[in-house]
Design a protein around this nucleic acid. Structure first.
Lengths: 227, 227
DNA sequence: CTCCGAGTTCGTCTATTGCCGTTAATCACA
DNA sequence: TGTGATTAACGGCAATAGACGAACTCGGAG
């Protein structure tokens, strides 16, 4: 993420007809004073002032590089600004159970064991499952951010994502589609009903979607016994 | 989106510890000879050779700018094949409009201009917006995967995400929460109603959520006029 | 083999940058 | 009003960039 911002800022300054103004814009965006920037770069404050005033029409790229890296270094040191928005508070209350299997489990075996009904028969169950995560989907909606999805996936995304408390099954599928990582299989535990859109989203994603009416306790036990 | 590629290439050259090699890389990527480039820039061919050889450790940004623009001009003159390949210009069907602002726009100014109603008054509007994306949210649900979200965000996530066709506003917020990148502000255009959960999700994410009843066409015009 | 086009290397000159230090101006606060 | 912090403006200078042209190299075609 840092590299993207780095390139963006450098590119913008480099291409600006008034690089001084652009440098200032970004310095202010990072909430950095000229003093602080000059100290960080080990130059006199008047140097920064001159640059921003546009005294130099065509600063060298080595200088631009140093300035941009200073922005990012200072931002990281103060833990705020541009990069901060990507640091997110973690919450895991919505993870009921999570485990890595000791050995791979075939998807169709798992479906079998949990008395699952396949809602996406056109999608192959020829997959190897490395683990499972059971998620309280009601709590998940309000508590899970994208960072938490990394926890949900544990060591492997080759897992079964099991959602309890599912009403129509839309929200879990929407979240799964939006996130870069994809599970091997999705299970809805005792859904009220499964919306046609949820099934369609699963198919679009190439994900087997399974429903089971086992009680949550039993379900976790069985999953746990798989490996 | 010539500007995006322009910024990408310039940023990369600018940040490179060996800018000469990076210039060559991109020149070859655009299938442009040194002769052609030198002719376009109106300089001697030995100048280009010297740059690429790294004779100049810190070329000025005016020079970089000229070189990058030459790449793009020449590419466009010969059909724009590389530009098309590299740009994020290929709009997905669900992106109605997307733009990077030439200068920062304050969030509260944007909200004002679109006659927006703030649904999350507890969230500060003290943000700087770099651009906007208008999304057909109905089409987005079935067509957008997480890769497409990178297109939505363009080069900066510091943007306003505007959703049209919103019923209750849940799905957009769920997708935003699941994705690693966050926008600066979210706007629902003429929603039927906004679900309380959507507002709660916005607050949890620290995102201002705005509703506006402007017609889509007017909305795009106004956003476009902001910068 | 010669010739040609594309690219390389390098000496040279002028213009500009990178940076210093000093002074002046501005702003916020007591 | 005085003070300190921050920023602005400018003269000066060594180093480097921007660009030229000449000589050279290399590969391919005839």
């Amino acid at each position: 993420m840092r590299d993207q911002v780095r390139e963006k800022v450098a590119g913008e300054i480099c291409l600006s007809e008034e690089p001084g103004k652009t440098i200032r814009k970004w310095r202010e965006q990072f909430s950095i004073s000229q003093q602080e920037l000059s100290r960080h770069l080990g130059v006199s404050p008047s140097v920064i002032s001159d640059y921003e005033a546009g005294r130099r029409k065509s600063p060298g790229i080595a200088t631009i590089r140093k300035i941009v890296d200073a922005f990012l270094d200072i931002d990281e040191k103060t833990g705020g600004g541009i990069l901060k928005q990507y640091s997110l508070a973690a919450k895991t209350e919505s993870i009921i159970s999570i485990k890595e299997f000791a050995h791979e489990v075939l998807a169709d075996e798992l479906v079998d064991r949990i008395s699952g009904e396949n809602l996406t028969p056109a999608i192959s169950l020829d997959k190897h499952i490395h683990g499972y995560t059971v998620i309280d989907s009601i709590r998940a909606i309000t508590t899970l951010s994208s960072f938490d999805y990394l926890k949900i996936y544990g060591w492997s995304s080759q897992r079964a994502l099991v959602f309890t408390g599912v009403k129509f099954g839309r929200s879990p599928m929407i979240a799964i589609r939006a996130h870069p990582l994809k599970p091997a299989i999705v299970v809805y535990q005792k859904p009220e009903q499964v919306d046609e859109l949820a099934i369609r989203l699963a198919e679009l994603e190439g994900l087997p979607l399974i429903r089971t009416d086992l009680p949550a306790g039993d379900l976790v036990e069985i999953l746990n016994s798989l490996g």
